[in-house]
Design a protein around this nucleic acid. Structure first.
Length: 215
DNA sequence: GAAAATGTTATCAT
DNA sequence: TATGATAACATTTT
């Protein structure tokens, strides 16, 4: 931690769920993982993993998070065009990556941070419901227009997620995640732990189509 | 009060 | 060596 002392903050940046504090010659990378939290000019009772006292008297505190140093230039480490909320987001590049893995499952594709940096499990469930795609669909079997809408919805819902979160009404606007019944069909959702990482999926077997590659 | 979960990464197997 | 499964971490919500 000593190397941070007295350093000038050159920039604050983000790449998906990575929170980056750029100093001269290296950067601090913070990831809140499942349970992390932060406070600005406030403190929690538990000890901070990282506490920054700035010369303008701003205090940044990070709790229960991963803190790592990045020794290289951030532009050399991160592909900003894969961040769904970046100005540099490139949906065509995302579609190209998806087309290169036709057997990948839709539920895995949305959680792939190299394609959709920033998308997590809640957004995955909400996006799949909104574009009516079954989580076990194979990416290569999606019609082009459906692939396009999935990519576009990943970005669009991510911005909506942020607005709802800031207004403290995220939860009440979920259409699929943690819900019991499909609001379109009024039938019970299926829930299962799917994909490579067995994350929770909530989906309607009636209105979310399962696209599969022909054998 | 137990169990599950907004996520990633280290480690061990294959 | 690359890929894959499992464990580990840590805190809030159900």
């Amino acid at each position: 931690m000593a190397r941070i002392q007295g350093q000038h903050i050159k920039s604050i940046r983000t790449w998906g769920k990575h929170f980056l504090i750029e100093l001269s010659g290296f950067s601090i990378r913070i990831h809140l993982l499942m349970f992390g939290s932060y406070r600005i000019n406030e403190r929690r009772e538990s000890p901070a993993r990282l506490s920054l006292q700035c010369s303008d008297h701003t205090e940044l505190n990070f709790y229960a998070c991963s803190v790592k140093f990045i020794e290289a230039e951030l532009d050399d480490v991160y592909d900003w065009s894969s961040d769904v909320m970046s100005d540099q987001w490139n949906p065509a590049a995302a579609r190209k990556k998806l087309r290169s893995s036709p057997q990948k499952l839709a539920c895995d594709a949305l959680l792939d941070q190299d394609i959709f940096s920033g998308v997590g499990n809640i957004i995955k469930n909400e996006v799949l419901f909104r574009v009516r795609v079954h989580p076990l669909s194979e990416i290569g079997a999606l019609p082009a227009i459906k692939l396009r809408s999935l990519v576009d919805e990943a970005r669009q819902y991510s911005f909506q997620f942020l607005e709802l979160k800031k207004a403290f009404v995220l939860r009440q606007h979920w259409l699929a995640h943690n819900k019991r019944t499909c609001p379109r069909c009024n039938i019970p959702y299926k829930r299962a732990h799917l994909g490579a990482t067995l994350r929770r999926s909530f989906f309607c077997e009636k209105c979310q189509k399962k696209y599969l590659l022909q054998i």
